[in-house]
Simulated scan of single mutants.
Amino acid sequence: MQRMRRTFLAVAGLVLSMSVMGIAQDVKTNSMPGTDFSKYHTYKWVAIEGASHPDQIVDAQIKQSVDAQMAAKGLTKASGDTADLFVGYQIAVDQEKQWNAYGMGGGLRWGGMANATSSTISVGTLVLDMYDPGTKQLVWTGTATKTLDASSKQDKNQKNLDKAMEKLLKDYPPKA
């Protein structure tokens, strides 16, 4: 009985860790070589033409989350038309299969039971771009996946978004 309990706990722990790894956010960044990021002190939000954008509520949440990270990096949001840096974003929400598995049993000696179910979840990707208004060139881009979930509650989405933006902008400005 003791051995069966330990095996069950080990399997449950493995399944739990696999499910947590499955929903981890992935971030990727890239920057224009040779860009002097120390010259950027202010930024302004701009719309990216042809890009997908969410409703006004989610738009405000995204901008609030990015604004907080930019302020933490020492950048100030410009109130006028001029800024050192233009910032824009776009989103995509796609469908993905999620597998939920659990098992119980005593290994090969005792036999056992296992069960796996699949469900479809929405996975959100947010792309954040920064442009130099003088050269009109993209100088920094970052992508965060598994950031937005249309079926989640608003507070959970905000926490995921804040976490993703912190992770995405962790190494901004890039080292020369």
Rank of each mutant, 00 (worst) to 15 (best):
M4T: 11
R5W: 13
R5M: 15
R6L: 15
F8D: 05
L9A: 12
L9N: 08
A10L: 15
V11A: 00
G13P: 01
S19R: 06
V20S: 10
M21N: 13
G22Q: 12
Q25S: 13
K28T: 15
S31N: 14
S31G: 00
M32F: 10
D36C: 04
F37E: 06
H41Y: 00
Y43G: 02
W45K: 05
V46N: 02
E49H: 11
E49I: 14
G50A: 12
A51W: 10
H53E: 11
Q56K: 15
D59I: 07
Q61V: 07
K63Q: 11
D67W: 01
D67C: 06
D67V: 03
D67R: 04
A68W: 01
K77R: 15
A78F: 00
S79Q: 15
S79C: 01
D81R: 11
T82C: 02
A83R: 01
L85H: 02
F86M: 08
F86N: 09
G88Q: 05
Y89M: 02
K97A: 11
Q98Y: 08
W99N: 14
W99M: 13
A101L: 04
Y102H: 05
G103H: 03
M104D: 11
G105I: 02
G105H: 03
G106Y: 08
G107E: 06
L108R: 08
L108E: 10
W110L: 13
G111R: 11
G112I: 03
N115C: 09
N115D: 13
S119G: 11
T120F: 00
V123M: 12
G124T: 03
L126R: 06
L128Y: 01
Y131N: 03
G134I: 11
Q137G: 07
W140Y: 07
T141W: 09
T141Y: 05
T143C: 04
T143Q: 10
A144N: 05
T147H: 01
D149L: 06
K153A: 14
K153Q: 12
N157P: 03
Q158Y: 13
K159H: 12
N160M: 12
M165F: 06
P174N: 09
A176P: 15
